[in-house]
């Protein structure tokens, strides 16, 4: 394989994993923007989405219905998680919230281990469209589907937040919750909706990811979850375009490091980026230096 072809292949790999990170990062960033909470259980929603769809596919259900139900299931889980675990702590300290979120993550991982065992399971990939040929490069369908679906969802989300009344409510709650209340905005509903959208996107990410890697396990969500979190911080936590940009940058860096430097070093470098970012530009690439909420 020539160097140029190899490089293009890596770019495609980077776009693929980058779009997964971006989808997950969107949930992190939206929830942070509105509830000022880092939902560390967010990565595990990918895993829940993957298992839900596995179980449904194994019943012989059509993939479209299985996917839809998995997304709804994850959205319901996100909604419940907020109501049960985070809402009662809304006035508590940030550290209590953080610990609760970490606890929630373990709860999800361990319950799924209990039900499905810790052993990885094969996932019946269902994206079987013709491969795309670009000269000597062949792009398999799950790769371009992942990219197209992710980009479409990001565009839809952006339009939703920019144009709809609920989207405007989300933006105003993110900027000043008290003032939003004075406008007559139902903050509880707005936070619930944010969790529903964020976890729904994570479910999609989980299903796309499983189609590409075809092996799932109860801990499959933690590493992509953490990387998506780094992507959100990199782009500027709270910023929607930031999460997308951060996701793609991170996916690209990780892939290129794996291909050209060392696959062992890839994760180290990703974490190094987080540390450097926090030291030199904590607000992220597109983040505003928002004042800390007291």
């Amino acid at each position: 394989m020539s160097g140029v072809v190899m490089f293009f292949m890596q770019i495609i790999n980077g776009l693929n994993i980058g779009s997964i990170y971006a989808l997950i990062a969107l949930g992190y960033t939206m929830v942070y923007g509105i509830a000022k909470l880092i939902n560390f259980a967010h990565g595990d929603i990918i895993m829940v989405g993957a298992y839900l769809s596995l179980v449904l596919l194994n019943t012989g259900m059509h993939w479209s219905i299985a996917t839809l139900l998995s997304i709804l299931g994850c959205a319901l889980l996100g909604f419940t998680m907020e109501k049960v675990a985070y809402k009662p702590l809304r006035k508590a300290s940030r550290i209590s919230l953080l610990i609760t979120a970490i606890g929630m993550s373990y709860l999800l991982q361990n319950s799924f281990q209990l039900i499905f065992s810790a052993n990885p399971k094969p996932y019946p990939a269902f994206i079987n469209l013709p491969s795309l040929k670009l000269g000597s490069i062949t792009i398999s369908s799950n790769y371009y589907t992942t990219f197209i679906v992710s980009v479409l969802l990001m565009i839809l989300l952006t339009l939703f937040v920019k144009k709809t009344k609920m989207g405007k409510a989300m933006r105003s709650v993110a900027e000043d919750e008290g003032a939003a209340r004075l406008m007559g905005i139902n903050v509880d509903h707005t936070i619930s909706l944010t969790f529903i959208i964020g976890t729904g996107l994570a479910a999609v990410a989980g299903i796309l990811y499983s189609n590409c890697y075809t092996i799932i396990s109860p801990t499959m969500g933690s590493l992509p979850g953490i990387k998506a979190f780094i992507a959100a911080v990199l782009g500027g936590i709270g910023s929607i375009p930031g999460a997308v940009l951060g996701g793609f940058i991170l996916g690209m860096i990780e892939t290129l490091v794996k291909a050209y430097i060392s696959s062992q070093l890839a994760d180290t470098i990703v974490f190094l980026i987080l540390i450097l970012m926090l030291v030199f530009k904590p607000a992220g690439i597109l983040g505003k230096n928002v004042r800390e909420k007291v």
């Binding site: 405007k168 933006r171 105003s172 900027e175 000043d176 008290g178 003032a179 004075l182 505003k288």
Partner: peptide, 11 residues
């Protein structure tokens, strides 16, 4: 009309 106006600066 709240104290310190609290307009949505980014809107």
């Amino acid at each position: 009309v709240p104290e310190r106006r609290r307009v949505f600066a980014q809107e």
